[in-house]
Simulated scan of single mutants.
Amino acid sequence: MTTTVGTSPRTVEAVPTLRAARDAVLKDVEQVVTTLLEDERARWKGDAPQALSLIDGIADLVAAGGKRLRPAFCVSGFLAGGGSADAPGLADLAAALEMLHVFALIHDDVIDAADTRRGRPALHVAQARKHSAAGWRGASERFGENAAILAGDLALVYADRLVAGACAPVREEWAVLCSEMIVGQFLDVSVAAEYNADPEMSRWVAVCKSGRYSIHRPLHIGALLAGRTDLGASFEAYGRALGEAFQLRDDLIDAFGDGEMSGKPTGLDFEQHKMTLLLALAIQRDERVRALVLPRSGGIDRADADELRSLLIDSGVRAEVESRIDRLVAEALDALERAPLDDAWRQELSAMAYEVAYRSR
């Protein structure tokens, strides 16, 4: 695998045997999710066929793909901790993390008024169109949002069901993960409303909203399932740094990426006046950015988005965020060096770090 760190290409090879073992478990994860949704569809088909639109909406989002990042880190944490790939409960736990992610994506699209997700209409958009086409009463947009909120809630119920049989330490970590993610999402909304250009607050929101729930907690949950409490500190240091790098890459993809490649609209952070670290640094550093964005009560419209992108480049902020990602990856790899892990798993988790931090979608 070849990646680009700043302007210097680097190559980090994954460990084929470890990746093959993890991928085999991830296939089981897909089957767990598929079976759960099929069973739920059969359960409601006779008594409440209207409910199928919620279940099918969840299923469509799962089928549309995605990186399966959280299940991959969970399984990796378990296998790196010495667990067996055929251990009971592993696939269920990893599937719960993907279902939790589905819950977050569905609600996030409502919050951000995003039109697409994974190259398809967002669930609230699809439900609004269904309402409009059927000529039902009430506002179509409102119906779509209501349906999406409830579909997200249902995905969360499914996630909790999949975790129910896990050991107490895993369930406790799961509760922490869920609460951090939801509080982080609210902080994201609150900071956007306040429009407070505080880079440290923006960094904290990134870590809380996405970093911990994407990498640190899934890794730790996997290790806890394997009974390896001694990996907690190392996985926290690795996951904290890599999770922040993950969110910073998301910010850059939103600002400068290709919507066709990412499967979701770009520029939404500007439009939704999100105070990302990228924008917070630019506001503090460049008068031109302040003059463009601060007088507005709402977000940046598409006409001014190109100008803002140019300013982010001219001010050096884009390059600074890239450099920060480099430093965070180095910090994550340093944590691996101190971790009580086999060398093969250090190499594999290093490869995963590069994939996460230098992805294009």
Rank of each mutant, 00 (worst) to 15 (best):
L37V: 00
L37E: 06
L37Y: 06
E38A: 14
D39T: 08
E40Y: 10
E40R: 09
E40C: 04
R41N: 07
R41G: 14
A42G: 03
A42F: 05
R43F: 09
R43T: 15
W44V: 14
W44F: 13
W44R: 06
K45L: 14
K45G: 13
K45Q: 15
G46I: 00
D47N: 12
A48D: 09
P49L: 08
Q50E: 15
Q50W: 10
Q50F: 12
Q50D: 15
A51W: 01
A51P: 00
A51F: 13
A51C: 05
A51D: 02
L52T: 00
L52C: 05
S53M: 13
S53V: 14
L54D: 05
L54R: 07
I55P: 01
D56F: 03
D56H: 14
D56Y: 05
D56W: 03
G57P: 01
A59I: 00
A59V: 02
A59W: 01
A59C: 04
D60T: 13
D60V: 02
D60C: 10
D60K: 12
D60E: 15
D60G: 12
L61G: 05
L61P: 02
L61T: 06
V62T: 05
V62L: 11
A64F: 03
A64I: 03
A64Q: 08
A64Y: 01
A64L: 02
A64K: 00
G65K: 03
G65W: 01
G66Y: 01
K67W: 05
K67G: 01
L69K: 03
L69I: 08
R70G: 00
R70H: 03
P71R: 07
P71T: 09
P71G: 08
P71S: 02
P71D: 05
P71N: 06
P71I: 00
A72I: 00
A72R: 12
F73M: 13
F73E: 02
C74D: 07
C74N: 06
C74G: 02
C74Y: 01
V75N: 11
V75Y: 05
V75F: 08
V75W: 05
S76V: 06
G77D: 07
G77V: 11
G77F: 07
F78L: 12
F78N: 03
L79V: 03
L79D: 03
L79Q: 01
A80R: 11
A80T: 06
A80W: 11
G81I: 03
G81L: 07
G82H: 10
G82A: 10
G82E: 09
G83D: 13
G83Q: 11
S84W: 11
S84M: 14
S84C: 08
S84I: 08
A85P: 04
A85Y: 01
D86N: 12
D86L: 10
D86E: 13
A87V: 13
P88I: 00
P88E: 12
G89Q: 14
L90K: 07
L90P: 02
L90N: 03
L90W: 01
L90S: 04
D92F: 02
D92P: 03
D92I: 12
D92V: 07
D92E: 15
L93A: 14
A94T: 06
A94Q: 10
A94P: 09
A94C: 09
A95W: 02
A95R: 01
A95L: 07
A95I: 04
A96P: 09
L97A: 10
E98L: 10
E98R: 04
L100D: 10
L100R: 08
L100S: 12
L100M: 15
H101K: 09
H101Y: 11
H101M: 11
H101D: 12
H101N: 14
